[in-house]
């Protein structure tokens, strides 16, 4: 018996990347632009989608909902008469805390891709793992709510850096919180200089136009990377 050194040089997540690439090819063949929407649980992804999807002129949009269990979010989107497929990571996938390329691939046959221009994949609520797993998307957006604290970007730099757009949600709550919005924005800027940011409230509708415009821009092949920051009517929110 002797020992032999074998060079491997393979990324641990290469298998996922290969499947993500196959997903991306399927999306592009059907002419669909794909957004991967991520956040911590409860930041407001589904509510922000409900607000934006009501009015996306000229864009046929579909949603892929990812949750560990239940079809609660899928049902909410379905009531908007938007094509939606729910993936639960619990049955068959072991309860994964994120969507991976294989799970998304398993859902592709159920999606009417030829009838869509834009697909939003609402990922499982989790600030850690989804950032590591490409699923075939073109762009990534995340929601960070003001109830999560100013330090989130410093604690989860990978997620904030992985995204092309950050929606700071629940700004209607600012008058009730000891929250330093400028510190959050400075922390986002420090971790991902120039990333697009919108201040929004899914409850009051502030910033939703900008979020909607970003989705329309993505669908038209324009990715909002110019770092344009759109401060919603913050003065009104702070009073």
């Amino acid at each position: 018996m002797h020992r032999t050194y074998v060079k491997v040089l393979e990324g641990v997540l290469d298998a996922n990347a290969t499947i993500a690439e196959a997903n991306r090819e399927d999306f592009e063949r059907a002419g669909v632009t794909v957004v991967n929407l991520m956040s911590a649980p409860g930041a407001g992804k589904t509510t922000l989608l409900e607000r934006a999807l009501r009015d996306l002129p000229g864009v046929r949009v579909g949603v892929l909902e990812g949750d560990v269990s239940t079809s609660l979010d899928g049902d909410r989107i379905a009531s908007l008469h938007v094509p939606v497929v729910q993936i639960n990571t619990e049955p068959g996938f072991g309860g994964e805390c994120h969507l991976d390329a294989n799970m998304v691939r398993s859902a592709i046959p159920s999606l009417p891709l030829d009838e869509l221009d834009l697909l939003v994949i609402e990922n499982v609520g989790n600030l850690v793992c989804p950032a590591e797993f490409r699923v075939g998307e073109h762009v990534r957006a995340m929601v960070c709510s003001v109830t999560e604290g100013e330090d989130k970007p410093l604690k989860y730099p990978l997620m904030f850096r992985a995204c092309d757009f950050v929606i700071v949600n629940k700004i209607d709550l600012l008058p009730h919180l000891d929250f330093d919005l400028e510190r959050l924005l400075a922390n986002i800027e420090a971790v991902h200089p120039g990333v697009g940011i919108v201040l929004a409230s899914a409850k009051t509708g502030e910033g939703i136009d900008t979020w909607r415009d970003w989705l329309l821009g993505v669908s038209a092949g324009r990715v909002w990377r110019d770092g344009a920051r759109h401060v919603g009517a913050m003065g009104a929110a702070m009073q």
Binding site: R3, T4, Y5, V6, V8, L9, V12, L13, E189, P193
Partner: peptide
């Protein structure tokens, strides 16, 4: 400057393995 890029520290790879072979 804010135009920075990661040049190291985002690897996660299997570099090599050592196996036992019969003589």
């Amino acid at each position: 400057g804010s135009d920075v890029r990661v040049v190291g520290g985002d690897e996660f790879e299997i570099d090599s393995i050592v196996i036992e072979e019969e003589e």
